[in-house]
Simulated scan of single mutants.
Amino acid sequence: MAGIYIHIPFCKKACHYCNFHFSTSLQLKPAFVDAIVKEITLRKEYLANEKINTIYFGGGTPSLLSAEELSRIFTALHENFSINNNIEITLETNPDDINAESLQVWKNAGINRLSIGIQSFFEEDLQWMNRAHNATQAKQSILLAQAAGIHNITIDLIYGTPTLTNEKWQQNVQTAIDLNIPHLSCYALTVEPKTALEKMIEQKKLQDVNQDLQSQQFLDLMKWLSDAGFEHYEISNFAKKGFRSQHNSSYWRGEKYLGLGPSAHSFDGVSRQWNISNNPLYIKKIAEGENFFEGETLTPTQQLNEYIMTALRTIEGIDLTLVKSHFGEKAAGDITLGIQKYVDGSNAVFQDNFIRLTHEGKLFADGIASDLFVV
């Protein structure tokens, strides 16, 4: 099975913390859709003989696409790929784009999962982030989606912002639980380079991130959602039974996927490609038949390190039997030796030939993974 990711690089406004590729001008949206449709045709052999199990519209703000634009994209996908009948199709959307009409358009198009960028249910948090929606729309968007019959919903929440107290964080999480949301993606605020947030912190216009507060809010989050019956199946992702993200899970399992649109990445099992991150240039190169992406073939060492990084973030953990069969006994032995100090420090457990992080270890997931890398 394989997946397709489609990057829609347009937003109504720029969130202060965001470093994804997007434009706040919609002027090029029609030409962009033309380019996406053509790229679908150009890339139809990339996943040759693969059944497409997931489609994910990310961004940017994919909910800015019109019914006609969505229809054109889906028609091209069905004409060029073999689509699974039980496919998961996710659309990222902002709360302010959700209404009865848009929900019907999405359902008619075949979208069966919504990823709603809530971020917070508090007005002051949303204003601090420069979000386009307000607190009323945050809750109302979920109720509207559920009323329309869409129940496979995930929401994004951000913790660790200077405006978010521990009490407000608990209220955010409890609101999601009370609204019967079956999947949550929760992210610690990160000050990314070249963002408005970084600049405002440097200029002392905004308060910097409190790492201790973030750590405590993450530990609290894990307890609250565990008590509420959620499975913590990846560092940032929590799901009720049967509601894991199939698309993102395929990334973490190292399965093949095709990325369409500017800045999108593709992976065929041994090589990675990435499209140029420039809307006008992407459109121009597609139209003129020029090359619009770069790529690299991953060495066995790079493949192993990627596996370590992704597997350690998941509930399944690192499978040393898999490491031994794919990368050799020495690699498995090196990882076993490398993880021992984290086992001794109660940050990891080693059981039945699997290595998994403890709750405390998840605070240091990236550092532990990089320490296990083969160089």
Rank of each mutant, 00 (worst) to 15 (best):
Q214C: 01
D334Q: 14
A239E: 05
H326M: 15
A67Q: 13
G110S: 12
H133D: 12
D178R: 12
I89E: 03
K38R: 14
H232T: 07
L357C: 10
D344W: 06
F267C: 04
L281E: 15
N134K: 14
C186F: 01
S102T: 15
I142H: 01
G328R: 06
I150H: 10
F373W: 13
H247V: 07
T175V: 01
I177T: 09
L258F: 04
H326L: 15
I142L: 09
E45S: 13
I318W: 02
T41Q: 14
Q246F: 06
G160K: 09
T175Y: 00
L114N: 07
L372E: 07
N248P: 05
F122M: 08
K240H: 03
T61C: 10
K51S: 12
D220T: 13
H133V: 02
I181Y: 04
I8A: 10
F350W: 13
E316K: 12
V343Y: 08
A138W: 01
N130Y: 08
K256Q: 13
P9A: 10
I111Y: 08
L197H: 00
Q351S: 14
Q127G: 01
G242H: 04
N279F: 08
L144K: 13
W252V: 07
F238D: 02
S370E: 14
I355M: 06
Q273E: 12
V270D: 05
D96S: 14
I158M: 10
E288V: 02
Q170P: 01
G269K: 05
I87Y: 06
C11W: 00
K194R: 13
